[in-house]
Amino acid sequence: MKRTTRNALCNLLLLAAGAALLLWVDRTFDRYVVQVLNLIAINTILALSLNLIYGFTGMFSLGHAGFMAVGAYVSSLLILPQAQKQTIYILKPLIWPLSVLQAPFFVAVLLGGLAAALFAILISVPVLRLGGDYLGIATLGFAEIIRVVANNIVPITNGALGLKGIPSYANLWWTYGWCALAVIFIARLVQSNTGNVLKAIRDDEVAAKAMGIDVFKYKVISFTVGGFFAGIGGALLASLLTTIDPKMFTFMLTFNVLMIVVAGGLGSITGSVLSGAVITVLLEWLRFVENPVTIGGFTIPGVPGMRMVVFSLALLCIILFRREGIMGMREWSWDMLFRGRTRGGEAR
């Protein structure tokens, strides 16, 4: 029992240290750095949620942008001030209950996540019977349908104009608070026997069925929890950027999340956390490539599109040369630190 006490203590210390760090960063650094740090937290949430669905349960889902859109719209509609709602809905006014509904930020984000989870349950009935690449293309289809619908139901989503002036409540405390929640819940889930069951489904569905596992039920659970956190990520992102429109939630967004998961390692929480930070910083850093740079009097013009060229090349390199990503399926744990174990998960 000493080991568990020690680990719990270490976790608490880590959380406290993280909070102190946030306090320091919040006071010291400029808005840009804080913005990037916020993005890291959100991307980590998104990556973890996709990793749960794909990395741990083996369901190749390409519908993350759809979950994010649901979370973003629901939560934004709940925090937009009434006056702002009247100003931005030019083509058609916002329909009644939504035009007056308001919720505190936490509740709004939570409801965004729950709406995405509900959406996940709804689509899981038809799509989760499919396997492999067909599941990918069907979830991608649902995400695209969401986008087209968001473009068209003007009295709710304001159509192509999108929502502007969303209050920017998302600060480091909120984003990292939710991120910590996602890390802790998903990590504990995959380490429990429920997590073992999900991995069993990933490894061999037939054997899982023979061992008494209701495969469909657990797929729905994994898909829904993943959808929930994707919705949370979308809700936080909307408040961070203060503007959303349907064009934002294209396949490209899903691709970015997929990249983080693959780079970190399918089936590794540690990998997703590490790669969430690395890839977000890389993506931000690559923005400079697209802006004009002046070195010693010479101006090198920025190259639009270059960022995604480098980014997609990086994904190709990972898939071709290091398919297991940063971590493979390994996890970091306190035991590793104290005892130097290499294989985590179910360490004694």
Binding site: F255, M308, L313, L320
Partner: peptide
Amino acid sequence: LISSIGVSFFIQNL
């Protein structure tokens, strides 16, 4: 499949 998604984004952005 992931590789082909990567190639697709690569060609588009190139």
